[in-house]
């Protein structure tokens, strides 16, 4: 006996139990599809590219080269970092890039999948999951660079490095949370993806990527309020010194991220049929 599905105008929130059951079922059902979509997107991406995985390395290297040169010429004055400066910039940029990818991923993926979304009813979670998988894959490639970096600069690591992935996962979850929150709106209005580009540009300067965590002034408190700061800094600290400077802030942001992600998932499910009805036909 095949399962029976109902489509009604009512809000799904009025039947929370059914909603959660459906969410669980779709999450399970979307694993394989997400894998397929990820493999599809990655192979298409690399097949139509000459430089291939080099694209994952280039931005951190260029950033590091630029800021190291500027620092040596005393054009900019960053304080002392606990790692050699080029390594500091490269490692932080790699982390920041991973965050930006996870932030842009859902909006891009949902917009690209518009024709598919408008025609086939498949678990929508799969597109987001596929994108998250892609972020992890890209980070794995960057890891090669990071390992090379650690060997080159002879950066001492601590046993806490095995905890670093936890912090990294939280960082990616934060990006996915904000990205998924914006994705339905991003399909309706192009302003979202345009705005995201500008905001991430500005956001970078509020995040300790090219400078160490500042402690003074309005700027210092702005950087502290930035939710990316504790996650990114903790990842970096766990991987290198092993001394976590602000564990409290890290857990506050992490818990908020996890709850936010769950709520966003519900919102995403509810919003998608309305979005699809407005964009296509």
């Amino acid at each position: 006996m095949p399962p029976e599905t109902f489509y009604t105008p009512e809000s799904m929130l009025r039947h929370p139990l059914r909603l959660f059951r459906l969410m669980w079922r779709d999450l399970l059902a979307s694993r394989e599809l997400a894998w397929r979509l990820m493999v599809r997107d990655l192979s298409a991406q690399y097949r139509q590219s000459l430089l291939g995985i080099t694209w994952a390395f280039l931005p951190p290297i260029i950033m590091a080269a630029g800021f190291t040169l500027a620092g040596e010429a005393n054009v900019i004055n960053v304080g002392a970092t606990d790692l050699p400066y080029p390594a500091y910039v490269m490692f932080s940029t790699a982390l920041w890039q991973t965050f930006v990818e996870s932030l842009n991923g859902p909006v891009q993926a949902v917009t690209l999948a518009k024709p598919m979304l408008a025609r086939v009813n498949f678990p929508r979670e799969a597109i987001i999951l596929a994108k998250v998988g892609e972020v992890f894959f890209n980070f794995a490639i960057k890891l090669v660079l990071i390992v090379a970096l650690f060997i080159w600069f002879q950066i001492p690591t601590h046993w806490t490095v095995i905890l670093a992935p936890v912090a990294l996962i939280h960082l990616i979850m934060l990006g996915t949370f904000i990205g998924t929150l914006l994705a339905p709106l991003g399909v309706l209005y192009q302003d979202v993806s345009k705005g995201l580009t500008i905001i991430t540009g500005f956001w970078l300067f509020l995040t300790p990527v090219i400078y160490p965590v500042p402690n003074e002034g309005i700027f210092g408190s702005l950087v502290k309020l930035n939710p990316v700061t504790p996650l990114l800094v903790t990842t970096r600290e766990l991987a290198t010194t092993g001394v976590v400077s602000d564990a409290h802030q890290f857990w506050v942001v992490s818990v908020m991220t996890i709850f936010g992600l769950l709520l966003t998932w519900i919102g995403f499910r509810i919003a998608m049929p309305y979005v699809i009805e407005r964009v296509s036909s």
Partner: peptide, 19 residues
């Protein structure tokens, strides 16, 4: 599109059994 569950109906109900 309503039958395939892509968009929600504004009134009424659609019941679908199976894939």
């Amino acid at each position: 599109r309503i039958i395939s569950g892509l968009i929600k109906p504004d009134t009424g109900i659609v019941k679908v059994k199976g894939r």
